[in-house]
Nucleic acid binder design. Structure first.
Lengths: 235, 235
DNA sequence: ACCTGAACACCGTTCAAGT
DNA sequence: ACCTGAACACCGTTCAAGT
């Protein structure tokens, strides 16, 4: 309109690797991973799909970058956790670190699957494990035991454990589970018994009867306690 | 050639759900999951892609069926393992069952990822867990502890734990890992130290320095031992 | 009932062209 | 240097048609 308005039609902030990755994370967070297509991503950025390839070489690179983004957030957050003072505190410090990672990952439900699908190792993930390793060492675990510990914890170290019975729609999932169990009741007497017992102890919990958070912590403590027992046995 | 040869041009065995799934498993075993396309699968069966939809409603259903196939094989194999006699043997029986599942899964490298990607629960997987639950109960674990145990074991109960540092090409992966660590040496002193120590203890093991099988067993025993301690504590 | 061919609505990506 | 439009080589799947 005005005479000296630059002729450029709304160039806005120029595209960049950072902006692309932020938009990608936002789409996956909001609409789920299947909605993350190159065309979709471009549209969110107000740009054509092919423009992205000027900043990232491929969609795989986009996924790699998204993981970096999330794990970088984890690394920044855990950096403020103080290191263990007496060796016996290593468990609590490792625990806190892992639960912080978990809290952040809960905001990015797509992240576990994507992290596990990466065959290349990511610098940020490596940094995370290096920090955890520092805690194990400070806690008095040998190099060998620390190595075993990283493997034993696996993705749990990053705060997630891919649940085998995790329907994407909780309500429909619970109903389907109920139907299936009822239908197979004769073939799966133990599962039927278990569910009956749990429903008895905690009525009204047939829906959402598993608390993911406390199940995660139970498994985590099982591993941390076992590792600490190994440590004490080797003193 | 001969006069009374039926006019049908080599109909062979008619297509069936079973045949489709067997072919699908074979393709994924041999060429990897990305090679499993509907067109590819049809070609292996000597048929057009659309013919498959007469026996399976979708590709998702094909993947579901493939999981059923593999876990059914596991269920058949573990069926011959005798149940625990004195309660204290439950750990060994559970261990044997899980390692059998693992051995079978090793023949189907695509299976872990596909199993974890299924949101619907599979009858064969449910049967497997029901059998494991029977062992836990026979071993004296309470319903509640058994429930925690299933969650804590998670996919480990089926014999796999998705490794975070698992390159698809081992040789290239090890080299890339070495390069990356060297490059980030200042930022990841603990990992560098760990690798140096392990290389020192066991020279010539820089390549393939992690024995997946023994790492799996270490983590498994950590969990089983912890669960058994809970059991004894509750007596 | 079972299978087919063509077509549709998507993908990620290459390439030559624009500014 | 950065972005675009058209096109390519794939996907899974629908549909009308064949036997």
């Amino acid at each position: 309109m005005s005479p000296r308005t630059p002729a450029i039609a709304e160039p806005r902030t120029p595209l960049s690797r950072e902006r692309v990755l932020e938009a990608a994370v936002a789409i996956a967070d909001r609409d789920g991973l299947p909605s993350l297509t190159m065309r979709n991503l471009a549209q969110a950025l107000g740009v054509e799909a092919m423009s992205i390839y000027h900043h990232l070489p491929s969609k795989e690179a986009v996924l790699d970058g998204m993981v970096e983004m999330v794990v970088a957030e984890i690394n920044e957050t855990v950096a403020s956790i103080p290191p263990p003072a007496p060796p016996d505190e290593w468990k609590d410090v490792a625990r806190r670190r892992i639960l912080v990672a978990r809290r952040i990952l809960l905001g990015h439900p797509w992240a576990p699957a994507v992290i596990e699908s990466r065959s290349a190792l990511s610098p940020e993930v490596i940094r995370y494990f290096d920090g955890l390793l520092a805690i194990l060492r400070a806690g008095g675990l040998s190099w060998d035991l620390s190595h075993h510990a990283l493997h034993a914890l696996g993705s749990r170290a990053l705060g997630f454990s891919q649940e085998l019975f995790a329907p994407d729609d909780v309500e429909a999932g619970e109903e389907a589970a109920g139907d299936l169990l009822e239908q197979m009741a004769d073939h799966v007497p133990n599962l039927v018994g278990m569910m009956a017992e749990i429903a008895h102890d905690d009525p009204g919990s047939t829906l959402g009867w598993c608390d993911d958070q406390s199940e995660f912590e139970f498994g985590l403590d099982l591993l941390l306690d076992g590792l600490d027992r190994h440590r004490r046995a080797s003193l």
